[in-house]
Structure formats: structure tokens, C-alpha cells
Simulated assay, not measured.
Amino acid sequence: MRAVTWQGRRDVRVETVPDPKIEQPTDAVVRITSSGLCGSDLHLYEVLTSFMTPGDILGHEPIGVVEEVGAEVPNLRPGDRVVVPFQIACGNCWMCGAGLPTQCETTQVTDEGMGAALFGYTRLYGGVPGAQAEYLRVPQAQYGPIKVPDGAPDDRYLYLSDVLPTAWQAVRYADVPPGGSVAVLGLGPIGDMACRVAGLQGAEIVLGVDLVPERLRRARDRGVETYDLRDFDGRADLVEALRDRTDGRGPDAVIDAVGTEAHGSPAGSLAQQAATLLPRPWAVRLAEKTGADRLAALYTALDLVRRGGTVSLSGVYGGMASPLPLLTMFDKQIQLRMGQANVRRWVNQILPLLDDEDVLGVDDFATHRLPLAEAPHAYEIFQRKEDGAVKILLRP
């Protein structure tokens, strides 16, 4: 089959690799019809390269058709149309029962001290082949895949794999009071969708911050009050403007949908770039002990949120030695919540919103739909924020 493989920093290629097959009785094989390109994939493209191996298959946002099932997958059969969550979980352990499939005790990558295995996301999360491919082996298929109706376009349900539950959890974790205010930092796919979800869940004031014109326009067209970072003279100027909009206190909640590659963090950016130039064993040890994030977005969130408010992190962070202003956080009594989205926990709440009314605007959420063969180009324009690329779907 053809698949998108990682070969080095900013180097992805579409190559022929062995077809997946049933390896365990709880496996399924799914023929992929569409697979999303996620901002988290860009972290592998640019920053987390020390944990990658040439030939790793990328991607974790698939929808497709079941081709084959193992003997212990009673709920699926060939021909079923399914969305596959990005995390791999059993559905039976204590963590899954607690609504935390990202911490599944069956698939935890204990050798690395990490949570549940993920598709296409480095050896830290199990080195499981990803979904930007023609076919995907799905472990724990008795629990993970979500059946969706035949006939509806892929775009209607594909985002259940990651974007929708990640945005939904970000808003739920933000704990915005009814009629309250929330600021969303970063209007990429997750931030954009989080703004939509926040309004749907009852936030009266939704403020979106970014510096990419296309992203700002998309959010503004959905009724979000947008703020262009380029119009402000530093973080303090932006924070003052958003505080003025929220009675001088700051928003009740701030969602950081940016993560480790934030603009405006020159020291963190330099450290990340330098790490990619080291020999791989050195780079791994450095990342595991002293890795740093670009923290401009997180620092902005902590400055901006009102006293007693909540900061919700959906952007991925990976620095083991990233400094935090604990004095400020403690003094402001900030609540901080974060983590990978627990997809199956939220699916039943999201599914009713994917009817023909399309209140979340999923049908036209993608800006680009490209053949799998054009994946290198897709990564390039997404990473550079060119050609209005906000959300890209790859189709084998």
C-alpha cells in the first residue's frame, strides 16, 4: 500500500510499504477513505524529530471502511463505515471506565512512562503505524472505532477522530460559566472549533486570537470577536485589550490551542532548533531531561485569565524543563487543566450535532482536500500557513 512516511526533519514522503494485517484477535483492518492532517503532525515534522524513526507512518485522523476483523471484535463486520479515534484504548480497564481512554491501562506505553498508545505518533506513544495511508491496522477494535452512517460525506464524521472531541474537551475543561467569557489563543483547526463549541455551550463572549488572516476571517465569519496579534505591541498590550473587553478582570477562561510551537518565543525556538541538529541519541536524552517549549501562548493565557479563572490546554506541550510562573498562578488561584482528548468520553454528546443542520460547520471545515500522493506539499503549506491552509484532508 501507499503511505505517508517520516524521513527526517521537514521530510515526509509517500512510499510503498507492506499492507497491514490482523495480528491480534482484537484487531481490525480499515480501508481509509480520508485522513486529516493535524497540527500535532507538524510537531513531528519540525520539533519532536528525536523520537521519530525514518519510515514511521504518520497520521491519526482517519475515516474508512472495515475490510477485516479479528475473532474478538463482535461489534464490527466488513463493510462497516467507521471513524477511528486517535488513541488506542481497550474500553475495559479502570482508566477507560473512568472516562480516561488516553490513560488506558491496557495500551499504556509503560516503557516510556507515557499514557495510551496513539496512531502515528513517535515511539513515546508506541510507534504504532499511522493513518495517512491506504489501509490501517486498528488494535482494540472492539472498542475504538465509531460506526457512522453510510452515504454521508467523509467530512461530516471524520472530525470525530480528533478535532471535535479535542475542541469539546478543551471547552469542558475550561469550565466557562453560563453567559461567561472565554478567550481562545490560536485559531487553527482546534482553536477554530473550540470557538464554535464554546458558543454552542453557552459562552456569551468568545474572543479569538491569531495572526494568520485566513484563520481570523474564518472565526470572525462564525461570530467570534477576533484579535490580530500583529496589531499589538507585545503581550502586555494584547492582555490589556482583552481585559478591557471583560470588565477589566480578564476572561473567565482561556483556551491555549497553540502549544509548543508558539510565535514570540525566540529562546524556546532556538533551543528546539538546536536540538534537531544534535546526534539522535543526544537529542533524545536532552528532550527527556531538559527539553523546552515555546511558552508565549501559555504565558499569555496565565496573564490574561481572570483571578480564579481556568486555563485549558489543548495545544501539545512536551518540554520536561519548561519554567512556569508558579507565584503568579498560585496568587491568581488559577485552575489549570490539560491533556489529550478522551475521544470516546465525548462522542455521544457530539454525535447529535452532526445532523443536517450542521451547527458546527463541519461540512465546509476543510480548506483543502488533496490526494495522498500530494502529502509532502500538504505538510509544507500547512507548516508555512500558505495558500489559506487551515485544515487539510488527504484522500488515498
Rank of each mutant, 00 (worst) to 15 (best):
V258Q: 00
R222M: 11
V206T: 12
L238P: 00
R243T: 02
V224W: 05
G208V: 00
A262P: 04
H263K: 08
D192V: 07
L270W: 08
V258T: 11
R285H: 09
R235G: 03
E214C: 11
R217L: 13
P177D: 00
D244F: 05
A203W: 01
H263W: 09
A274M: 14
R285P: 02
A183M: 03
L185F: 10
A274W: 12
V176L: 04
A267I: 14
D228F: 05
R285F: 03
D256F: 01
E214D: 12
A275E: 11
L270C: 05
D228W: 04
A283F: 07
I205D: 12
Q273S: 13
E225M: 14
A174D: 03
R218Y: 13
A283Q: 10
D175F: 00
G208W: 03
V239S: 03
A274I: 08
V239E: 00
V212L: 13
Y173D: 11
P266V: 04
L277E: 14
L229M: 15
A274K: 09
S269R: 15
A283S: 15
D210T: 13
V239R: 00
D228V: 04
G191D: 11
E204Q: 15
D233W: 00
A174V: 02
L270V: 09
P189W: 00
R196H: 07
E225G: 07
A194I: 09
Q273L: 14
D210Q: 12
D192T: 14
E261S: 15
A262S: 15
A262I: 03
L200Y: 14
R196W: 01
G180M: 06
V254F: 12
L229F: 07
V206R: 08
G191R: 08
T276K: 07
A262V: 00
Y173P: 00
D244T: 14
P251S: 05
R218C: 06
V212F: 07
S181I: 04
E240I: 00
L277S: 10
R218A: 15
E261W: 12
E288V: 11
D210A: 14
R218D: 07
G188W: 02
E288H: 07
A198C: 08
V209Q: 02
L238I: 00
I255R: 04
K289E: 15
A236Y: 01
P281S: 04
D233F: 03
D237T: 07
P178N: 05
P178M: 09
R243L: 12
A274R: 11
P251W: 06
R243N: 10
P281H: 05
T260A: 13
P279V: 08
A287S: 15
V182F: 04
G179M: 03
V284A: 05
Q272D: 08
P281E: 08
I205P: 00
R245Y: 02
